[in-house]
């Protein structure tokens, strides 16, 4: 890799430059192929958004029209004002979700990155193989079943029905750690770290000022995954909390779709589905733009 990079001397050969120009100027075939695929892929989101704005008579049609014909805000009003299907106001679920998800995701990304740094970059680290090996092994355990014994642990620690029960078990995120390590292996030049050490920089400074900016695409991507995964997760709040005031939006969704009033509440369901999806799209757009932007501007050479 470095061998190739070293040969990257300035050149005036017209042929590669021409090819580069052609490649840059002709994204048309890609777009022709990608746009229809993208539209097809977008269908569920379009359906969710359009259903949230459907008036009652359109909701009851079968087969349901894919797009809304006469958009209305009735469903949102119904969801936020009428609470007969939910025992606490919808805004309470919303607060719980936002608080739990934001706290968890920030802690997840920080703690996973911190752990990945020595695993990837320490020259000698006794126990590295055992630690990394068990994290990789944990990656391959179907999450559905560790949840059963996890409940026993949460109960033993007296965390049932607290925010801790929703936040703490999610922090040791094997996926996040594995991904951060993979990125650090390849995207952070060892020479950079060695140089900083020779200059006497403390390890924390090296980690925070050199390693983290270099793996910005990785942790921005992790923020997206973590957010979407936590936001959509209904299992932990269902199992680890008891009182309704501790539940999250994803659980409220289930009460809305499964309760006795489910049929009559189709509009509220659709509005809740929209409110469920909107934050994830927002986070995706904010962070994904960041992934692209950071790399375009930092101009890192490997």
């Amino acid at each position: 890799m470095t061998a190739i990079a070293q040969r990257a001397i300035p050149y005036d050969d017209p042929l590669p430059r021409l090819w580069r120009a052609v490649r840059r100027a002709s994204p048309a075939p890609s777009y022709l192929f990608l746009i229809p695929m993208a539209v097809f892929s977008m269908l569920p989101i379009v359906y969710v958004i359009s259903t949230a704005f459907k008036p009652l008579e359109e909701l009851l049609l079968f087969p349901p029209p894919f797009l809304v014909r006469r958009p209305t805000l009735d469903n949102f009003q119904d969801l936020l004002l009428a609470t007969d299907a939910l025992s606490v106001p919808f805004t309470r679920y919303l607060f719980n979700s936002v608080f739990v998800v934001v706290t968890t995701v920030l802690l997840q990304v920080l703690i996973c990155s911190m752990c990945a740094y020595p695993l990837s970059k320490a020259r000698v680290l006794p126990g590295r193989n055992v630690i990394f090996g068990s994290i990789v092994a944990a990656l391959m355990f179907a999450p559905q079943v560790t949840r059963i014994p996890q409940y026993l642990v949460v109960q033993k620690l007296g965390l049932i029905d607290t925010y801790g029960a929703l936040i703490l078990p999610a922090i040791a995120w094997s996926y996040g750690l594995f991904m951060m390590k993979q990125f650090m292996d390849n995207s952070v030049p060892n020479e950079l770290i060695e140089a900083a050490r020779v200059d006497g920089a403390p390890e924390w400074t090296i980690f925070w000022k050199i390693v983290m900016p270099n793996v910005a695409p990785a942790w921005n991507t992790l923020l997206i995954f973590g957010f979407i995964q936590m936001w959509n997760d209904s299992f932990s709040p269902l199992v680890f909390t008891r009182s309704e005031a501790m539940k999250t939006v994803s659980v409220a969704m289930i009460s809305l779709t499964n309760g006795p009033a489910a049929i009559a509440r189709q509009g509220a369901q659709a509005a809740a589905a929209f409110l469920m999806t909107a934050p994830t799209i927002t986070v995706f757009l904010l962070r994904q733009a960041k992934v692209i932007q950071t790399m375009a501007h930092s101009g890192i050479k490997a």
Binding site: I111, V124, I131, A138, I148, P149, P169
Partner: peptide, 30 residues
């Protein structure tokens, strides 16, 4: 030599042992 490395890993490993290793071992025992 290695203290700072372990300090960096400590928070993750603590959560990992309590909420991942312990449940996996319990699952195997069950």
């Amino acid at each position: 030599k290695y203290g700072s490395s372990y300090l960096f890993m400590a928070p993750f490993l603590a959560f990992f042992v309590v909420f991942v290793i312990a449940p996996v071992v319990t699952a195997m025992a069950l």
